[in-house]
C-alpha cells in the first residue's frame, strides 16, 4: 500500500497538521517507507494468533462509581486563553 501526495494532504488536514507544499514530497515518501514496513508485517501468516488490542497482557481495572473530584474550575480557567461567566470562550463556531 502507498499514499499519493493528495492523500497525505488530506490526512494532514484531518489531523490539523500544516504541511507546506515543499515538505509534501518528503512527508509522502517517509510515510510510504513506514507503510512498506506494514507490508512486510502483512506477509506473516497470523491466522492462528489472537488479535491484540494492547501490548500489556492485562485487562482494564474498573473504578467504583464515586465522585472524587473537587471543583477546580477557577484554577483551570486561570490558564485558559479566554473565559467569561465561567465558560471557556473560543472563536465563534458556526454549524
Amino acid at each position: 500500500m502507498s499514499l499519493d501526495k493528495k492523500q497525505v494532504k488530506e490526512i494532514a488536514y484531518l489531523a490539523r497538521l500544516s504541511i507546506e507544499d515543499e515538505e509534501l514530497e518528503q512527508s509522502t515518501s517517509e510515510l510510504n517507507n513506514i507503510l512498506s514496513l506494514m507490508d512486510d508485517l502483512n506477509e506473516i501468516d497470523t491466522g492462528d494468533v489472537e488479535p491484540m488490542a494492547h501490548p500489556l497482557h492485562m485487562s482494564q481495572r474498573l473504578r467504583d462509581d464515586e465522585v472524587t473530584e473537587e471543583n477546580l474550575a477557577e484554577e483551570f480557567q486561570a490558564i485558559a486563553p479566554k473565559t467569561g461567566k465561567s465558560h471557556f470562550l473560543v472563536p465563534t463556531v458556526i454549524e
Partner: peptide
C-alpha cells in the same frame, strides 16, 4: 452513574458551567 465514565467528576445535571469538569 454518579461520576463520569473515565473520571471521578460528578455527572449531576444543571451545575454551574465547568464546575464538574476535572483534568
Amino acid at each position: 452513574t454518579k461520576s463520569k465514565i473515565f473520571s471521578g467528576a460528578s455527572t449531576e445535571f444543571g451545575a454551574k458551567a465547568n464546575t464538574q469538569a476535572c483534568a
